[in-house]
Amino acid sequence: MLEIRNLHASVEGKEILRGVNLSIGDGEVHVLMGPNGSGKSTLSHVLVGNPKYTVTEGTVQFNGKDLLALSPEDRSHEGIFMSFQAPVEIPGVSMTNFMRAAVNAKRKYFQQEPVGASDFLKLLREKRQLVGLDAHFMSRGVNEGFSGGERKRNEIFQMAVLEPCFSILDETDSGLDVDALRIVAEGFNKLRTERTSAMVITHYQRMLDYLKPDFVHVLVNGRIVKSGDASLGYAIEERGFDWIKEEIKD
């Protein structure tokens, strides 16, 4: 599904990614771990095309397409979704209007008619229930006055509505209490299929418990320095990152 080759990227002239290589196949869940500032969020933002980040070298193939050549919105239409670490508030744009605009933009991309009013409301209701998001959130501005937990739940709700084939969860678990984390992780698990993949950034073992990832990668100084299965994640939880940094030195 996703092939990242020798990816270098910088923000405000500072190089953050220094040659990332990563392959993610259909149906796989990859967890990305690493110390603060190692480039995890940068990698996520580069993949979704945030204009603040500049790719200086390397390639990314997404389902056979040159991902880096696509606009952020076309990447979204092609099936990439990012659950933001800090979802922004958009006062005055109601959740319903926002989601309608998003759904119809995707339909337009695939030359489909805009979604009908009743079908759309049915879709929203169904997906809301998946993450336990109350109906009154739909008439509020996007993330306006939402608590930290509600914002993260809202991210998974949007993911459910847009049905991406590749999702990036950027610390979706941070700032969540135990129950909220369960709801978010279970919501995510319900959306998993054999053909959907994900890249999950987390610092917590609890997320590993829920998601049961196929692979765990460690990013240090803008490079993936170690990969393994879920047990690598548990080892990091127990021992931190220093031993990996030592290994690299050797």
Binding site: I90, F98, A102
Partner: peptide, 16 residues
């Protein structure tokens, strides 16, 4: 215009 809001919307597929 809030650039981060703009990008958030584009990530959801809404044209710039």
């Amino acid at each position: 215009l809030d650039e981060s809001a703009l990008f958030y919307m584009r990530q959801r597929g809404i044209a710039e």
